[in-house]
Computed example of a mutant assay.
Amino acid sequence: METHEIYELIEARRKELNLSQSQLGMLALGQDNSSVIQAIKRGSSPSAHKLEAICNALGLEFYVGRKRSDGETQSSSNQEGSEVPNDFAFVERFDVSLSAGPGTSGENAKKLAPVAFRLDWMREKRLAPEKCVVCGVRGNSMEPLLFDGDLVLLDRRQTDPRDGQIYGVVDIEGDTRIKRIELIDNGLLLRSENPECRTELRHGEDANRVQIIGSLVWSGHSYDASSQTLISQKPRKSTMNHEWILPR
């Protein structure tokens, strides 16, 4: 396959997922810029490592080995598809942590095992599984709504910010974060749910540099049984008067 064909394939899939080139760079390589994609466009062949990371981020197959026949490829695809329950859809998950406090760079943005969601629920929410992504939450500034270690489902189609909605974003320094966005004249506010955390202003050109990954549509919280402790309480004094009836 020629370099220009690789570029055309990447671009077609990127646009299908409604990702910018910078967002793809962040998800695939932890780089908040389009330099890798632009280099491919200019005819520079990407390394196998970078190409594999890009394919993983886009949900494309990266294969190196003996040439496979069409029948063999189709058989492999059918076999993989038969393992997927018909009433569930699998959404891609990356090990990017959306910071609920100070930003994190997402430098380890590799693909993890997908997360299954019921198809009827996704249809009810009008979500397209292939245009969603699951990420983790890091920090406490979005408590009590989101906690450190939670998983969140983002709708990648929702990239035009609406006032008061919560979004996963790539901030101006390349940090991946999750915040409630409030729109103001010529800018926006990144607001936390935790009242102890400050609201951050992105004004003018800085506001334009904030890239929306997607809007929050679901969150999941897990509990560690070993860390759960009972709060000791003093026995409560009874305030009821009992009349005992004794057998004769």
Rank of each mutant, 00 (worst) to 15 (best):
G59L: 09
S238E: 09
T239E: 12
G25A: 02
P195A: 05
T73C: 10
I212M: 13
N33H: 09
T159V: 12
S238K: 12
L9N: 11
D32Q: 11
W218F: 07
S22H: 07
K179A: 04
Q23L: 14
M1E: 08
P235K: 08
F88D: 04
S44N: 15
V134F: 04
E5H: 11
L246C: 06
K67R: 13
R13Y: 09
V169G: 02
R13E: 14
Q38P: 01
R198D: 15
D120M: 08
V84M: 13
E83G: 12
I172K: 14
E107M: 10
L146T: 04
D185R: 15
L27H: 04
A113V: 10
R13F: 08
R156P: 05
N194V: 03
L98K: 01
S82F: 08
G187W: 00
G25E: 04
S219M: 03
L98E: 00
I40R: 06
S75L: 14
R162S: 09
I184D: 05
S77Q: 15
N86W: 12
V91E: 03
G204P: 03
L29V: 07
G103W: 04
V170C: 13
K131I: 06
E200V: 14
A53Y: 00
V36P: 03
R42D: 09
P161K: 05
G71V: 03
D206G: 00
N140Q: 11
P247C: 05
L246R: 13
G103Q: 10
K125R: 15
S238P: 06
R138Y: 07
E72M: 11
H49V: 09
Y7H: 07
D206H: 01
G101Y: 00
L190R: 00
A89V: 12
K234E: 13
S44G: 08
T239F: 08
L190N: 00
V96N: 01
L201W: 10
A225V: 07
Y167M: 03
S45G: 01
L51C: 03
Y63T: 03
I231D: 12
D95C: 12
L201A: 14
S99Y: 01
Y167R: 02
S192R: 02
Q23R: 13
K111T: 06
S192H: 00
L146R: 05
S141C: 10
P114K: 09
Q228E: 11
E92C: 08
A53L: 04
E173F: 15
S35E: 12
A100G: 11
D206C: 00
Q165L: 10
L246H: 11
S22F: 02
A116F: 04
